[in-house]
Amino acid sequence: MAACISSLGYDQYSSNNLDELFNLPRYKRYLDLTSHEVNDQLENHSNKRLKFSHDDEFVNVEKRVVEFSNKEFPCLKIVAGSVYIPKDNPKKPLGEDAHFIHELFQTIGVADGVGGWVKQGIDAGIYARELMKNSHTATYDEAMKGPVNPKRVLEEAYKNTHSKGSSTACIITLNSEKSSIVAANVGDSGFLLIRKGKIIYKSPIQQRGFGCPYQLGNCKDNPSVAHEMELNVEKDDILMVGTDGMLDNMNDSEIEEIVRRAINEKLKPKELAKKIGNIALYNSFDRFADTPYARASKGRHKGGKVDDITVIVAYIQ
């Protein structure tokens, strides 16, 4: 399931509005665990919350925010929205995907628990959710030191995640000063960079063979295998991040067509994420669809792939 951290996007920061900035009691942060109840409108389910606090982390936060507020505010920022659709499985109603959005520190991430662990009675979704929760915490820690480094975020999150199982992971941050996005990817989750309705970059997948992606956790992989990327971005670019439930069921041409319509209709990021998620869901049940998954299987599979679907859309403004 998606561990969707509440997005915090503000244009001004000072010690006087610190509590308002986090919109929470002092020195507390909250992790939104999205519900497994999927309604007809594919709402981003956020009616379940798990509290966690990091009292020690916030001791010097006012000083640091004051220092940040004295600098010129970066030109670019991301405004993001997401949708999560777990596949229908009564034994794992929360699914195996997870994600977070941290607009305050301009960082987003997705994870997809590897389903093969079910043969050992292990729900890999638990690992994915813990990994994303720890990635959110590590993003804050990284931001207090300087620009967020996605690979270091993964390294810190990996070190502190102890659940059984394994997961793919993709962390992306916007470096406003350099007008670039920096990413670290492990496995077959990934992202697209879209400019004026055209996909100009698609992250490569990491896998040892069909259906066997690189993965973090109780396996032989670790963050050292992460593929690191840095790409220049421009105002009005669109960053689309997803697990393989989206990427395996959506052709590039479909995504581009939906994005162009969304631009014309001036849809918000969450609204575009819903449309992409809806089409991915439809294709996943189509036994005759010409999907990336079917082509990659080289005849072993036809149609779509029924899977958990996570989509994050971030507008670069």
Rank of each mutant, 00 (worst) to 15 (best):
Q317P: 11
L239M: 00
K178I: 15
L18M: 13
D221Q: 00
S135Y: 05
D40F: 12
H227S: 06
K178N: 08
K51R: 11
I309A: 01
H45T: 05
Q12D: 13
Y84F: 14
L94N: 04
H136M: 14
S53Y: 11
I263F: 04
K305P: 01
S14W: 01
Q106M: 00
G245Q: 00
S6K: 15
E57R: 09
S14N: 13
T243W: 09
V110G: 05
V153E: 07
R26N: 04
S224N: 02
E130Q: 05
N249M: 01
A124E: 11
K71T: 11
R260E: 15
H102P: 10
D286H: 04
T310A: 08
S179L: 11
T291A: 06
E103V: 09
P150D: 07
H45D: 11
K235Y: 05
D141M: 13
I200K: 02
N39P: 05
N283S: 09
I181F: 03
H136G: 03
I205Q: 12
N89L: 06
K196R: 11
Q207K: 13
G109M: 01
C75Y: 14
G277P: 04
D56I: 06
N185T: 10
K274H: 12
G146L: 06
K270W: 12
S35Q: 01
E234L: 09
I172N: 00
D141C: 12
N251Y: 03
I263L: 13
L76V: 03
C212M: 14
N249H: 01
A296W: 08
F73N: 07
N283F: 03
S69R: 05
H162N: 13
G187R: 06
P90N: 02
K274N: 03
D88N: 07
